[in-house]
């Protein structure tokens, strides 16, 4: 700010103190009052001019900057940005940039690079509510999604446009052989997610989550992108048909009623042990107390 103080060049050789100057505004003698008015007007003018110049300089700088720097970015990606990508960028810069970096390159100790993860990873992470992350911990918990489906599409478009990667599948994701799906699930997934996708513990607070609330696309994109501790099951490991078979199996088993009665979590002997003690033995102890009281 090199603007001069408008008051500083007011003549100070007038001699009269400020208080007297006010008194001298009286129309007793015309010339000093007129001079003072003229001085005040020129002071105003200078002030306005200075502010306008500053504004003009700022606007010019801003325009130049906005005209030049994004031009370089679009030159890199080789195409102009679609509106969805632009909207996605805006969302990204608002919610993701802190941990994933301004160019999706990731930030050490905060978040991984998103270059090449593809829209499949974005869909899984954002649709299950894992991203945006609330805090850094052993594993991102799933929670209600923060973004709407439309916003997720925009984010997917943005990430896909900047690095590519696995894309979302299309068509019926349950179009696969049920039995084969079961076999593949037990072979590839059950060791962490349990026989029926009830989930299981991993080390140090990490875990394989339950598939209870997962939809078809989430299961599919999880296999494609390998979130967190899960390995990536690329299309050369599990073909799209096999992935669809697994999705079909998981969703069929989940929807299937328990023919034996209450499912008690479908978790096997731990729940059964709790039931036999808390229900079975407790009921019988009550029974023999009752018989004892009849003595």
């Amino acid at each position: 700010m090199s603007t001069t103080n408008p008051q500083s060049d007011a003549p100070s050789d007038e001699g009269a103190p400020r208080g007297l100057r006010r008194w001298s505004r009286r129309p007793a003698d015309g010339s000093p009052a007129a001079a003072a008015r003229a001085r005040r007007r020129s002071k105003h003018r200078r002030r306005v001019a200075n502010v306008a110049g500053l504004m003009a300089a700022l606007v010019l700088t801003g325009t130049l900057y906005s005209a030049l720097s994004p031009a370089q970015a679009t030159e890199e990606s080789g195409a102009t940005e679609s509106s969805a990508e632009a909207a996605g960028r805006e969302l990204y810069e608002r919610s993701c940039i802190t941990c994933h970096g301004e160019n999706l390159e990731g930030v050490p100790t905060r978040g991984p690079s998103l270059i090449g993860v593809g829209e499949a990873a974005v869909y899984f992470q954002v649709h299950t509510g894992r991203m945006p992350l609330v805090r850094q911990e052993a594993q991102a918990p799933d929670k209600p999604a923060v973004f709407s489906d439309e916003e997720i599409d925009q984010l997917m478009a943005y990430v896909q446009a900047n690095g590519g990667g696995p894309t979302l599948p299309s068509g019926d994701l349950r179009e696969g052989d049920l039995t084969e799906g079961g076999e593949l699930f037990r072979l590839n997934c059950a060791s962490c997610h349990n026989f029926v996708g009830e989930g299981g513990a991993l080390s140090s607070g990490k875990r394989a989550p339950s598939l209870e609330d997962a939809n078809d696309l989430e299961i599919y994109t999880a296999m494609l992108s390998g979130p967190e501790n899960m390995p990536v099951f690329g299309d050369n490991q599990l073909t799209p048909e096999e992935k669809r078979a697994i999705v079909n199996y998981v969703q069929t088993i989940k929807a299937q009623a328990d023919p034996g009665g209450a499912g008690i979590g479908r978790i096997g002997p731990v729940a059964e042990g709790v039931v036999i003690w808390v229900v079975g033995v407790a009921a019988l102890l009550f029974g023999i107390f009752w018989m004892g009281s009849k003595a």
Partner: peptide, 9 residues
């Protein structure tokens, strides 16, 4: 093998 494979109580 599955997660949560346990014997009876």
């Amino acid at each position: 093998v599955s997660a949560a494979s346990q014997p009876d109580w």
